[in-house]
Design a binder for these strands. Structure first.
Lengths: 220, 220
DNA sequence: CCCTTTTGTTACCGATCAGTAACATTGCTT
DNA sequence: AAGCAATGTTACTGATCGGTAACAAAAGGG
């Protein structure tokens, strides 16, 4: 609970400490700057490589201001992944929103958008994949956030696949999930701007076609 | 050049230092133990997370024995990746050797074997992917080894794809490459033993079928 | 105005990082 | 046996890691 402590509710009278409804905007401000710095640095340079000193320097705050809001670097990692979880689903649903009620086009659109995002020079792959690589110990608390993201992803893919005409929705979801992870990994290993990432939508389309039959069978 | 220095050739007479053709088996022995420790530790726990102290402890040698053979930790990284390069192609060609002259079955076999390998509890993904994640700076000398591995891989896939009956060999190779990277990433993010990795051969087969037509069109 | 709580700042902790200086010991060669 | 080069060992460097103690300044509320 990184939010600054407040009185429970100011329970009327009979209270020795008189309801400290402080302003504390300084703390909230520092917290926001810290989280912004964390999000940027952890993603760009890696959570393991970035120390708290680099974070406070980037955030423009003092180290004690950080440790008064967050109990440890691990807490920062949790906040970082929580923020990335939100951001990921925002991307995901934004793609889907472009073709309401058309699950097949929705899925393809996600790959089109992912391909574009992964082609940007500052793209550093999937924060969850990167975290799992940087922290091999599956018992690390933040690894739960990684597992949760991926389990929600495969569930969502299965749900969308079931709404297509695919004969085997499970298999289609598995294929698409592997393709997504493939784009994440390939964006880091293949030299930037490689044709692989640009070919992602084509490959996804091919997979969708193979699972559902020819593109869109609309009666003429 | 981590090999212990020897005399150029012992150039006959007229030489102040008399041809030190030493045995040096101690150094070679230490070097082998160091490389074995490096290979294990860097892969299992991550190259960034493992310090040279951990390496020398695991190798059972003294730290100076390490620094007399290798000039820096970066040199160790290079050796590590070079060894993994060899190991990877050994795996790859071993799969292909199971179906000589049948490029389609060769490709599928690789996915079958990769799926099995990636299902083992101690599998930690692709060393090259992991390295790229742990060392985001593309200018890092060892990143050349990563790029080289992937560029050889895609070239090899294209070569094999061209020998199948696939209409678009390039597209097939791209799809398979993305699938391979996907298996690497998914093996680390999805909870161990997830159905995704087991489904890898099925997905690969589906992709091959879509590209080449039904399994093996042998005239009856 | 006084008092309490939150802030900002500095200096520090022990642990670990990659890498090395210095020296004792071994083992081979002549 | 003498000498030299390769070893083994210890202790150390300066930098950085995550995290904290202590204290001064400030800001709010009664």
């Amino acid at each position: 609970m990184p939010a600054p402590k407040r009185k429970p509710q100011a329970t009327a009278t009979a209270d020795p400490q008189p309801a400290p409804v402080r302003v504390v905007h300084r703390a909230a401000e520092a917290q926001a700057q810290i989280l912004a710095a964390v999000d940027e640095l952890f993603y760009r340079e890696g959570a393991r490589a970035v120390g708290v000193d680099a974070v406070v320097k980037r955030a423009g705050v003092n180290k004690m201001s950080l440790y008064r809001q967050f109990e440890s670097k691990d807490a920062l990692l949790l906040h970082y992944l929580a923020g990335r979880e939100q951001k990921f689903w925002a991307y995901f649903e934004a793609s889907l929103a472009k073709h309401p009620g058309q699950p097949r086009e929705q899925l393809l659109q996600f790959f089109i958008d992912l391909s574009a995002r992964a082609s940007q020079h500052d793209y550093r792959g999937c924060p969850f994949v990167n975290f799992a690589v940087e922290f091999p110990d599956p018992a690390h608390p933040a690894r739960l956030a990684v597992a949760a993201n991926k389990s929600r992803l495969i569930a969502r893919l299965q749900e969308l696949a079931r709404h297509t005409e695919a004969a085997d929705a499970e298999a289609l979801a598995n294929g698409l999930a592997l393709l997504i992870e493939g784009a994440y990994a390939a964006s880091q290993t293949y030299t930037p701007g490689h044709a692989l990432i640009k070919a992602l939508p084509q490959v996804a389309k091919c997979m969708l076609d193979a699972a559902c039959g020819p593109p869109t069978e609309s009666p003429p």
